[in-house]
Design a protein around this nucleic acid. Structure first.
Lengths: 226, 226
DNA sequence: CCGTGGCTTTCACTTATTGAAACGTCCTTT
DNA sequence: AAAGGACGTTTCAATAAGTGAAAGCCACGG
């Protein structure tokens, strides 16, 4: 019974996702991407357009709309984890000079970068908030899916991305991993000892995140409207 | 015939918007907000949940999901205007010490803050990216909807928000305003002369945005996938 | 000049959405 | 303690609503 869903809505959301992933998509491409007939895709995209979730650029191609930006930004703001993690990311960057990320498991078996702080080295790992990352074969994935790693952190050298080493630690309120803190380093720059040192830092920050956190269920909830 | 739309999808999107606006909503509240029967709302929310657009917190309430954050962040990243405006906002803050915003008209007759830079004064205007602002009675609204203001900028003292003065200038590629740059100052701190000074800065930055911009239609478009 | 591919509209089919109603549960009220 | 109310959930028959094939248009390229 978990399988209740509205086909129309699902299709529209797939379409929306496709447009956002691509950044810009023609009707025909969008239809192909979502495996829909052109007429259906057109109708759904029009609906999305009417509500501001997509817009058409001068050329007629579909682009993510402002509503997406708006809701996304709002949601990010409400994400207590993000604000909670910011200082930790900041500290990790200061202590290591490398880029640091906060990521959480997504609904589809991947992970998403929720927040990041760029490293200070001129050669640094660069990604972006909102980026999807696979869970298989990544340090982040290992700590998000697996049991608490020995030592508190996981190091993956040249996993999905070549030439980079990722060091991740789980944020596990109540034992189950809910998020991951990670530092990503160009592989050439790091030794085993260095990885252990950073790992310790990451693990420590990940653990500390929880103690500072209040109940995750405290949010500003608007209860107006009759 | 602009009125083609799919009711189901529209409803789902309204629901999604309601959840995101509120940050957290019970099923009953969401249903009321969207004017839907509980059963319909439940079904649609389940669909949104299945696709990651909303999630349920431990209490069972609906929250914006990761997909929203992800797509929003992606969309923000693709927004060339934002990256284009960042340096301008930065400069405005440095020159004035006040918070500076980039906003664009939304689809529903309001405006949205697309980017912002917080001022350096300890008492400063604080808002957030994604925030909706009315166009009526605001400086931003004036420059977004009206014709090019004399002097290049508009000052609104104690408009929608009490005790703050907003100074906005239009970014008008090809004559029609597409976005607004604005600086918002606590009213007590500013004189008419000061407003004019800031106005000149804002207007100048707004104008300069365009010259630096290439064709707004240049984006990184991924064209893979058969 | 004709063919190809994309965008759009139309329309008959029927599938998929809908909302009232009923149920169980958990609080609050009396 | 019992009654009342609100909420989340499920069921089900009516039908409103979404679907996709087909055809028309337009623009482009050979």
């Amino acid at each position: 019974m978990a399988e209740s869903s509205t086909r129309t809505v699902e299709r529209a959301l797939v379409l929306l996702g496709a447009v956002c992933d691509a950044g810009s998509l023609s009707l025909a491409d969008a239809a192909r991407e979502a495996e829909l007939s052109a007429s259906t895709a057109l109708r759904l995209l029009r609906t999305l357009e009417g509500t501001g979730f997509v817009r058409r650029d001068p050329v007629g191609a579909y682009r993510p709309g402002l509503r997406v930006v708006q809701l996304g930004a709002q949601a990010l703001g409400h994400e207590s984890l993000v604000s909670l993690a910011e200082p930790a990311l900041e500290r990790l960057v200061r202590q290591t000079g490398e880029s640091a990320y906060l990521s959480v498991p997504s609904h589809d078996g991947e992970g998403v970068y929720l927040a990041m702080r760029e490293g200070t080295h001129s050669v640094r790992h660069a990604s972006w908030v909102g980026r999807s990352i696979p869970l298989e074969g990544t340090a982040v994935g290992a700590v998000l899916t697996g049991s608490p790693p020995a030592g508190g952190f996981v190091v993956v050298r040249d996993g999905i991305e070549a030439d980079v080493t990722a060091i991740a630690a789980p944020v596990s309120p109540g034992g189950r991993p809910a998020a991951a803190l990670s530092v990503v380093v160009p592989s050439y720059r790091i030794t085993d000892a260095g990885a252990r040192r950073i790992g310790a830092l990451v693990a420590q920050e990940a653990a500390a995140l929880l103690t500072r956190a209040g109940d995750p269920a405290v949010h500003t909830t608007r209860g107006e409207r009759a």
